[in-house]
Nucleic acid binder design. Structure first.
Length: 1043
RNA sequence: GGGCGUUUAGCUCAGUUGGCUAGAGCAUCUCGUUUACACCGAGAGGGUCGGGGGUUCGAGUCCCUCAACGCCCA
């Protein structure tokens, strides 16, 4: 071990070297570990598990910085802190990545591999990427208890999932039903709504004629319907007309008139045109629409062409009388709106599609065709029998799968649902009654509204990667089969209510003939099996029950995260100690998907809310106000920021941006790998595979580089200059500490008596007390920006710029040296601790360096410093040290100092030239300033020659005034009269403005009557300002005379 | 379409319950290497607080309205 020598400390913090070393020291020292046996009060945070596939982005950096800052403060405050880490298996996202890779590298689909082999591959992928993402979190400095790292698909979580599913199944809160899903025919899976994007494409709008069966005299022989998807007509089960076409047209017209009032001139013509068209329509079409409505009411039926199926004419508001023919064909199994109509009108739903997107047996001769082929044939066939009326070109919105980039087909499928009514209510109550608080409070509303809808939660996903649903099913063709089957199951060895639960799902189709035709069973028997009962599962399979292939929605396992990670359903010591957790920190887009579901699952499984507080942090956008994403090319990799600025700067920058109301805008720059020049990213250059540096003109590659040539170029980092401030602050702190250590030679710890404290010592103690109190309160309230602003201001502009500067004089004085050293060590100690939660690495490094010279610290009481800052005690200073009088005294000094410096600047007097000055002020003010008078010399190279009521202005002087003082700088032989006159004139104008505004206020009788105290304050400051004005006017006159 | 939020200096943001001449960082300009730090120090310039209306003795702050932008849910 080398001996520590402060002279060896470099002038810059080598964060790249220190970060890994320090992190390993913490981790191997067990500092991150929560102890379930501890006597200390617990404080728990569970990480929002990042997707295993994803690389870390700045949103993660922000999210984890905030969690780490909080958990580090709590750890220092003496809590038994546990930050629970882990990753999410992220169902479709992960499977899609691996499948795409399989396709690209080997030209295979998942079906070529089979379920087991594919899942095996995904696990391997997961191992690789999980290590990467956890490594990234560690680089940020996250003090998670890494030994406890969980994965939503590992054994512990799987047991919790299975246990929960079984419990809900048994309570009949899980059931199977039909639902229209977004079907990706390429991946052959459902896709959630947020994985569907809409694309505008050129398409056609076909108008068909459906014959009316037995039209009454005067009634039309055909009904016209229009569609952009002709092939879906094979699954039509009705045609709808509006029940009140007259009123519907009126409403549209009145909406248009409203719009006309508001619209600009350019829009007016188009709206007026629409109104006219509507009026014409009312004349032409309304009688026909009303007739159709009456026909529907009368039970008229239509003949569905090509299929020769009778379908009803129904009334429903989904039909839009203002559009097309005013009638709409209803295909319940393949259109979300039609699905709703079918539910309202009790229509049959005919599924016409196979899982691969081809048409099924329901479509007769069209069976086996793709949608595209079927479209062509349907149109041709209709045309052949003269039922195709017209075709028009039109732009249509086509839903696409975000994963496979292929069109989405709406599809009716068997799905498992969680019944939400009771569960939602419990989660609503938890927030309404205050067991869970959400910060900022405005997010409560979205949470409550979403839960209030109590929509059942579809939890099946047609994937292979995930928790396979633990239900075994057998279809029974007749009623007679059901009871014997159930009895046989109950008679199986080991059957027990704790092992298996049975549900009977009768077929929706009650007509036996139809069931036979559609090959539907009479009923399905579902058996849910608890975990760890493989023999029973085998027995079920022996009886012909087949396990459900679908897996659960990822959010199902995420919903259990706060308790599953602690070992539930086992009653582990961890669960007893750390549940409910304390705080959850996450982003707003998953409040309903994740936060709400955790609350209701926590209540269901544990009987207690999963966390007491939820903090929703801002989202990060680029300089254009767009969300950052890899697909836009504007995503900043936190590791690039760490490489350039250091982890502490990244963290401080993040926390500094984290304000209450605003999302965070972070202008994005490229950094040239050749010359390190940084320049703004634009919407143009951020999508290029290579960019040339405007400074050195050399080219570098970006994330888009694909060609061999582009990829051979060095890659440019995507960063943000916004972290410079934080990096500079890190450097400032580093150098202030370096200075301290260079001056602490011969340090001896011993208590300082209160009587020996100087004014500046008392000021520092007062400031430390105030700042530590504020920072603590801010962090407890999630006011990260306020906390970091306070620390920045204090550390830089008070501790460094004043206290350390003043200590320099005291170090030079042998008699004062030892005392000054002790005060410096003490205040630096406090400052480091306050900064540690936000800037853990540099504070740990300085802390341990400091320990080499000052192992014992403190002013009133001396104690041996903790070995590591990470678990040093959080500063809790005696509130009695807050001293407003001292802080005011200090600000007098500061304002005098800044006036002196301003005079130096405006008079262009070099720093090396010593000046003399006087301060004229009341006697009591003079007494306050006296002890600080010596510091004018160091900080402004100015000598205070006279102080007090008797002070007079020298013959040639520059004058400044404050409310309490007049400052005269003797400028004999130095003065730039013109500059001084200019300055005085400006000052005079300012004062006059201020005075007249005060006078105006005071002459306002209502104001003086309403706020007498405030009026008095203004009177005082008015008289001060008038005095200042008199002084300035006097000086101005003298100076002008010399011109 | 419904809900939430934002609009303050060239840029990114603060601005408590309405109250004295609206603040910070970066950028710009001027000066400066005095025993920590040029990733530094001192100073300066720069804002009719998105538009309009209202309440009030007094509005960046409260209310109404319009506009633009962002997010969430349909």
């Amino acid at each position: 071990m080398t001996t520590f020598n402060p002279n060896d400390i470099p002038s810059r913090f080598d964060f790249a070297e220190a970060q890994n070393r320090i992190f390993q020291m913490w981790e191997s020292g067990g500092y991150f570990e929560g102890d379930p046996e501890s006597e200390k009060p617990p404080y728990t945070v569970v990480i929002p598990p990042p997707n295993v596939t994803g690389a870390l982005h700045l949103g993660h950096a922000l999210n984890n910085t905030l969690q780490d800052t909080l958990i580090r403060m709590k750890r220092m405050q003496g809590f038994n802190a546990l930050w629970m880490p882990g990753t999410d298996h992220a169902g479709i996202a992960t499977q899609a990545v691996v499948e795409r890779r399989l396709k690209e590298d080997e030209g295979k689909t998942r079906h070529d591999l089979g379920r087991e082999a594919l899942v095996d591959r995904i696990w391997k992928w997961k191992e690789q990427y999980e290590a990467r993402i956890l490594g990234q979190l560690k680089q940020i400095g996250s003090s998670c208890d890494w030994k406890r790292t969980r994965f939503t698909l590992d054994d512990v979580c799987a047991r919790a999932v299975r246990h929960t599913f079984f419990d809900l199944f048994q309570k009949s809160l899980i059931y199977r039903g039909k639902r229209l899903v977004n079907w990706d025919t390429f991946l052959q899976t459902t896709v959630s709504d947020d994985e569907v994007f809409s694309k505008t494409v050129k398409g056609q709008f076909w108008h068909f004629k459906y014959p009316v069966i037995d039209p009454q005299p005067g009634e039309p022989e055909f009904v016209i319907v229009a569609t952009t998807r002709p092939e879906t007509m094979l699954g039509d089960t009705a045609v709808a007309v509006h029940p009140e076409p007259d009123r519907a047209l009126d409403r549209v017209a009145s909406e248009l008139r409203e719009k006309l009032k508001k619209s600009s001139d350019s829009e007016k013509a188009s709206v007026e045109g629409q109104l006219e068209a509507l009026a014409a329509r009312r004349t032409d079409m309304l009688p026909k629409l009303e007739q159709l409505r009456d026909m529907a009411a009368d039970g008229r039926k239509l003949m569905l062409p090509l299929m020769d199926r009778e379908i009803p004419l129904v009334c429903d508001v989904w039909a839009k009388p203002e559009l097309g023919a005013g009638c709409v064909k209803i295909t319940p199994a393949h259109d979300p709106n039609d699905y709703e109509v079918a539910k309202r009108c009790d229509l049959p739903m005919i599924n016409i599609m196979n899982r691969d997107g081809t048409l099924n047996v329901e479509t007769g001769v069209y069976s086996g065709l793709t949608m595209k082929q079927a479209r062509k044939k349907v149109v041709e066939d209709l045309d052949a029998i003269q039922l195709l009326k017209t075709v028009e070109d039109r732009e249509i919105e086509l839903p696409q799968s975000d994963r496979s980039k292929t069109p989405i087909e709406p599809y009716l499928a068997d799905q498992w649902f969680v019944a939400m009514s009771e569960l939602s209510q419990s989660a609503i109550d938890a927030v309404v009654e205050g067991q869970v608080s959400i910060t900022p409070k405005r997010y409560e509303r979205g949470y409550l509204d979403w839960l209030g809808e109590k929509r059942d939660w579809p939890v099946s996903r047609q994937l292979w990667w995930g928790h396979q649903i633990p239900v075994w099913t057998r279809a029974c063709d007749s009623e007679a089969e059901v009871q014997p089957l159930i009895e046989a199951i109950q008679a199986l060895p080991g059957f027990d209510k704790t092992v298996a639960a049975i549900q009977l799902e009768p077929c929706e189709e009650t007509d036996a003939d139809k069931r036979a035709k559609l090959e539907l069973p009479f009923a399905s028997v579902h058996v849910c099996v608890q975990s760890g009962c493989e023999e029973f599962e085998n027995a079920l399979e022996g009886m012909g029950l087949i396990r459900e292939e679908d897996v659960l929605d990822t959010w199902f396992s995420s919903a259990l995260w706060p308790h599953s990670t602690l070992g539930w359903p086992e009653q582990t010591p961890e669960l007893a100690c750390f549940y409910p957790t304390s705080t959850l920190i996450t982003s707003r887009d998953i409040i309903s998907l994740w936060v709400a579901r955790m609350v209701l699952m926590g209540l269901n499984n544990c009987g207690e809310v999963p966390f007491e507080k939820v903090y929703i942090h801002p989202k990060i956008q680029d300089g254009f106000g767009e969300t950052m994403s890899k697909s836009k090319g504007n995503g900043i990799d936190p590791l690039d920021v760490i490489a350039k600025f250091g982890a502490d700067a990244l963290r401080f920058g993040m926390a500094h941006l984290c304000t209450e109301t605003q999302d965070v805008r972070l202008p994005v720059q490229f950094e040239c790998p050749h010359c390190q020049h940084t320049f703004d990213q634009t919407k143009k250059n951020r999508i290029l595979p290579k960019v040339s540096c405007p400074s050195c003109k050399k080219e570098f590659s970006t994330q888009w580089a694909e060609s061999e040539e582009d990829r051979s170029l060095d890659k440019g980092a995507v960063i943000s200059e916004r972290f410079e401030t934080a990096r500079n602050f890190v450097n400032k702190l580093w150098n202030a500490s370096r200075f301290a250590m260079l001056n602490l030679e011969g340090y001896e710890a011993s208590p300082i008596s209160e009587d020996d404290l100087t004014v500046e010592d008392r000021w520092m103690l007062s400031r430390l007390t105030t700042v530590s109190g504020n920072v603590t309160a801010y962090l407890e309230d999630f006011k990260y920006a306020d906390a970091t602003r306070e620390l920045y201001e204090f550390a830089w502009h008070q501790f460094c710029s004043f206290y350390v500067e003043m200590l320099k004089d005291r170090f030079a004085d042998e008699a004062k040296r030892s005392h000054a050293q002790r005060m410096l060590a003490y205040s630096l100690d406090c400052l480091l601790k306050l900064l540690h939660p936000v800037m853990p690495f540099i504070t740990e490094e300085i802390w341990q360096n400091l320990a080499h010279i000052c192992p014992e610290r403190g002013w009133a009481k001396v104690e041996t410093a903790n070995r590591c800052i990470i678990d040093a005690a959080w500063p809790e200073l005696n509130p009695a040290w807050r001293d407003e009088a001292i802080e005011n005294q200090f600000s007098l000094y500061q304002s005098a100092l800044s006036d002196l410096r301003e005079i130096r600047n405006s008079q262009n007097i070099g720093n090396k030239k010593k000046v003399k000055f006087s301060i004229k002020c009341a006697a009591d003010i003079g007494e306050l300033l006296q002890p600080l008078g010596i510091y004018f010399s160091r900080m402004a190279n100015a000598e205070l020659v006279e102080l007090g009521p008797e002070a007079v202005a020298p013959e040639t002087s520059a004058t400044r005034t404050t409310a309490e003082m007049e400052i005269y700088v003797d400028l004999d032989g130095l003065i730039d009269i013109e500059a001084e006159v200019k300055r005085l004139e400006k000052e005079k104008a300012n004062l006059e403005k201020s005075i007249s505004s005060k006078q105006r206020q005071l002459s306002n009788e209502k104001f003086v009557a309403a706020k007498p105290d405030l009026a008095n304050e203004i009177r005082t400051s008015l008289s001060q300002a008038e005095n200042q004005l008199a002084t300035i006017a006097d000086s101005l006159q003298k100076m002008t005379a010399k011109l």
